[in-house]
Amino acid sequence: MQERAPQPMQRTRRGPTRRTALAVGAAGAASLPLVALWRRGLRSRAVHGEELPELVEPARAGRSAHLIPNVPVIDHRGRERLFYDDLVRDRIVAIHFFTSRGETLYPILDNLVRVQRLLAHRFGKSLFFRSVTLDPEHDTPERLAELARDKGVGPGWDFLTGKRENLAFLKGYLFLQRPTLTSRPSATPEVSCCSGGLVRYGNESLSRWGSFPAKVTPEFIATRFQWIGFREEDCPRVG
């Protein structure tokens, strides 16, 4: 069905060598991922001493591999997952960022749960939601598991946490929004997420990506997964 990209650096799927921890100046083996970092401006941050994300070579690069960073995250069941390899590739997904504390100020999960109810028959089979926290110190896997239970989140929907730099890198990649001259730092940065109203959705294997507002009518959201799914067979793999 699709040609597969050559895999220049085969790595063991599991184990300590699978990660390419990046550092400025490691322009040799890690040079290509560095370009990807450069693309989103991480270069300047690295210069200023911030930590770099643990970007991992995808085991197999699908059509959206250049769009979705493959960084380690931890789901609300406590499992370590690679964001692109394990959670996005070959799937139809919706991805958004949130914080459980921010939910009280800017609630969006309840509306997405309504969408899940409408599409329950596809969840976990041909449709997946990825909710990524930006408050990992507070939103531990245990807290996220509790939240998932409270909200009635079912199979195919992962709440994700992990290292702050990995999550921040993911968000920087998926939500290219620059600070404005008039934007002010939030009084409570740990619970703010300026992209909270927006959800990215896409079909990885076809590389079709769009966005929808998290708060609009659930039925209006639910129709979208047909727009990019084209047919059920387009996303047959089960995660």
Partner: peptide, 21 residues
């Protein structure tokens, strides 16, 4: 197409752009 899909296959001409700013 392989190039588009392979996130880390980037033309070498771009690599020099990773030098310090």
């Amino acid at each position: 197409r392989s190039l588009l899909r392979g996130a880390f296959l980037v033309p070498s001409a771009l690599l020099k752009r990773t030098s310090p700013p």
